[in-house]
Write a protein that binds this DNA or RNA. Structure first.
Lengths: 337, 337
DNA sequence: CCCCCCAGTGTAATCGATTCCACTTTGTTC
DNA sequence: GAACAAAGTGGAATCGATTACACTGGGGGG
C-alpha cells in the first residue's frame, strides 16, 4: 500500500549513510563494520526493501539480463530450448527476457528494438529475418548475439550454436539408402533459412554421392508456421510414383505431416518409411514409434548461455559450436519392399 | 563500437535542448514546432538513438512490462499459454519477462524477488508454492497479480483466470458413467494445488451423486514434475480388480501415463477407456485418437493480460474469470464391458 | 495600445541506485 | 612519539531519461 522503501529509507532507519547501505548490498565493494552491517540488514528486513533494478542498471550496464528471441514457443523444440536456457541462466544468476517473433520479420525487428532499449547483456536468438541490418545495429550498441539453430549471413561477430544440419540430413538419408529406398520424399524449411538450406543440400549431396537420381518433385521446402506440412505430405503421397520413404526435416511441420499420413491409407512402415526431425515424447508413443533425429537441447542451451555471457567485452570473431544430433532408430523405418 | 548515443547527444546534434527531444520522443507531452521535430527525428535516425528503458523506468514506474511466472514451459499447455500471452501483450505494447519455477517453491521465491526488484506492472502466474507470504509482499509493493489455472489461498487482491476444474472433472466422470463404467481410475495433481483438489472433489462428488461406490485405491494424486505418471498408471492397471476406465487429469503426466498404457497389454478402448486433460495435437494422432478435455489457452491469455493491465491503480477485491473447458469426444472411450 | 494567453523552448530538479574521493579514527611501525 | 597505513564512513557526482516551471515573443481581444 505505502510506497516501497528506497535506499535512503534504509539508511535513515539504520542511522547511517546511503553509501554504506550500498556497500552492504554489494558485498565486497568496500569495508563495513560488522555491527553496522547488522543494523543495515535489520533495517532492510523490516522495511522489506528491494533495490530497484532500473536504478542499478542505469549506473552500470546490465550483464545481468539476457534476451531470448525465439520463433515460436509452441514448437516443442523451442520450448525445451527455452526451458533449458532459463534454467541454465538462472544457475548463473542471470535473468531472461523471452520474446517471440512468430516467424514474422516485422515482429522480430520490434523485439530487437525492445532488447536494444533495455541494453541487455546478450541476446540468444533463432533469427527469422534475413535482414542483417537490424542485427548489426544491435551489435553496434554493444550487445552480443548468439544464434541458435539458425543464423543470419553477413552478421559476423555473432556466435553460433547449432547441430550439424548438413551431417544430420546425410545420416538420415544414408539410413534410408542403406535400407534400399531410392525414392525419398524430403520436407524441410524454406531455403532462405540456414537450416532449411543446409539440410536440403546435405540430402541432395548424399543422393548424388550414392549415384541415386534426384527428383525435384520429391523436395518440399515449406514455411515453419502455418499448415503446409499437411499439403506437402499429401502431394508427395499422391505423386504418380510416390516415394517409399519420407524425411520430415522441418521440425515445426512434423505433427501436420504425420497427421496427414495417418489419415491416408498408407501404412507405416509397410508402405512408407518415416524419419522425423523432432525430439518429443510423443514420437515414441506413436504407432509405430518413430525414427527420429534428436537435437540435444540441454547441451545447446548450456553453450548458448556460456557464449552469451563470455563474449561480453570480447571482440573476437564469431565462434561456432557444433553439436552432434542423435539419430534414434525406432520402428517407422524398414527395408524397402 | 562507440558508446551508444544519449538524449544529450541527440539534443546537441539537433541544436536544441533535451527537454524538446524528450517531447518528440513522448508525443503529446508538450508542443514542438514542426521544423524542430523534423531536425530531432533526423538526429535520432543518424545517431541510431534508442531511449534507455532503465532510465525511463526510473522516473515513472513501468506499466510497460509484465512478468510471466510459469511452472514449466516444456508442458505444452503452458507453452501455448506463454505464446498467447506474449502475443496478446505485445499487441498492447507491453513486454513480457518470462520466468519458470520448475515446480520448485524456492525457485519461485527467487523469481518473485526478481520481479519485485524490477517493479513490473503486473505478474501473471501459475503458482507453485502454497506460501502466501511472498505473494503478499509483492502485492504490497504495488504489483498486481493474476493467477492462471491455479491459485494460492489466502491471497485475495489477486485476480484469477481458470477453467472450471470442478465442472470439467464432473463432465469427464459423467461421460464415463454414462458409458457404463463404474471402476474409474483418476490421476490428478497434488491435493495441495487448487487444480488437483478441485478436480478430485468434482470427480468424487459426481460418483457420490450417481450412487457409485468410491474406491480410494483408484485415486492417484501425484506431482506435476517427475515420472510418477508411469508408476501411478501401472499400479492402477495391476490392481486385483483393475479399472475399466482412467481419467488423467494431471496435464503434465499425460504423456507418461499414456506411454505406460501403451507398453502394457491393455487395449484402448477395448479393455480400457481413456480421457486425458490435455490440449495437444498429438492426442489426435495417437491410436486410438484420445478423448480430451481442452483448456482454451488463447482465451485465458487474453483475459489474463487484460486483468493484469487493468488492475493497475485499482484496489478492489479479487475478480475471477471462469472459462469453459471444451470436452472433445474421440475414439478412446467406449461402452463398458 | 495594453494585456493576456499560448506556442515554443530551456533550466534544473528528480527518480534510486553506485562509486570516487575525502575525511576521521584507530592501530602499527620505526 | 611521530608518521603512516588501513578501516570505516559520508558527501556529492553520476547514470539517462522525464517533467515542473520559468521564460520569450507574437497574435488577438478589449
Amino acid at each position: 500500500m505505502s510506497k516501497p522503501a528506497t535506499i535512503r529509507d534504509v539508511a535513515a532507519a539504520a542511522g547511517i549513510s546511503i553509501a554504506v547501505v550500498s556497500r552492504v548490498l554489494n558485498d565486497g565493494s568496500g569495508p563495513v563494520a560488522p555491527a553496522t552491517r547488522q543494523r543495515v540488514m535489520k533495517a532492510i528486513e523490516e522495511l522489506s526493501y528491494r533495490p530497484r533494478t532500473a536504478a542499478r542498471e542505469l549506473k552500470s550496464g546490465p550483464t545481468t539480463t539476457l534476451g531470448l528471441l525465439l520463433a515460436d514457443v509452441t514448437n516443442p523444440f523451442f520450448a525445451r530450448l527455452a526451458d533449458s536456457i532459463v534454467r541454465e541462466a538462472r544457475s548463473r544468476g542471470v535473468h531472461v527476457i523471452l520474446m517471440t517473433t512468430q516467424e514474422d520479420a516485422r515482429l522480430e525487428e520490434d523485439a530487437l528494438d525492445t532488447l536494444a532499449a533495455r541494453r541487455v547483456g546478450g541476446v540468444i536468438a533463432t533469427p527469422t529475418s534475413t535482414n542483417a541490418e537490424s542485427w548489426l545495429r544491435l551489435i553496434d550498441l554493444g550487445t552480443n548475439i548468439v544464434f541458435v539453430d539458425r543464423y543470419v549471413e553477413g552478421v559476423s561477430r555473432a556466435d553460433l550454436v547449432s547441430i550439424d544440419n548438413d551431417r544430420s540430413a546425410r545420416e538420415a538419408t544414408e539410413h534410408l539408402l542403406d535400407l534400399g529406398h531410392t525414392r525419398i520424399g524430403f520436407i524441410s524449411g524454406p531455403l532462405s533459412t540456414t537450416t532449411g538450406r543446409a539440410r536440403t543440400e546435405g540430402h541432395l549431396a548424399t543422393l548424388a554421392e550414392r549415384g541415386v537420381a534426384t527428383d525435384p518433385q520429391l523436395l518440399r521446402n515449406i514455411p515453419f508456421r502455418g499448415d503446409q506440412g499437411a499439403d506437402a505430405t499429401g502431394s508427395l503421397l499422391n505423386l504418380p510414383t510416390p516415394p517409399t520413404a519420407i524425411i520430415v526435416a522441418n521440425t515445426a511441420q512434423v505433427a501436420a505431416s504425420v497427421r496427414r499420413i495417418r489419415q491416408s491409407s498408407v501404412r507405416v512402415p509397410e508402405d512408407l518409411s518415416l524419419i522425423v526431425f523432432d525430439d518429443n515424447p510423443w514420437t515414441e508413443l506413436f504407432t509405430p514409434s518413430l525414427t527420429i533425429m534428436r537435437q540435444p537441447t540441454t547441451l545447446m542451451a548450456a553453450h548458448s548461455v556460456d557464449l552469451a555471457l563470455q563474449r561480453i567485452g570480447d571482440d573476437s570473431e564469431r565462434r561456432t559450436i557444433v553439436i552432434e544430433a542423435e539419430f534414434v532408430v525406432r520402428s517407422s523405418t524398414r527395408t524397402a519392399g
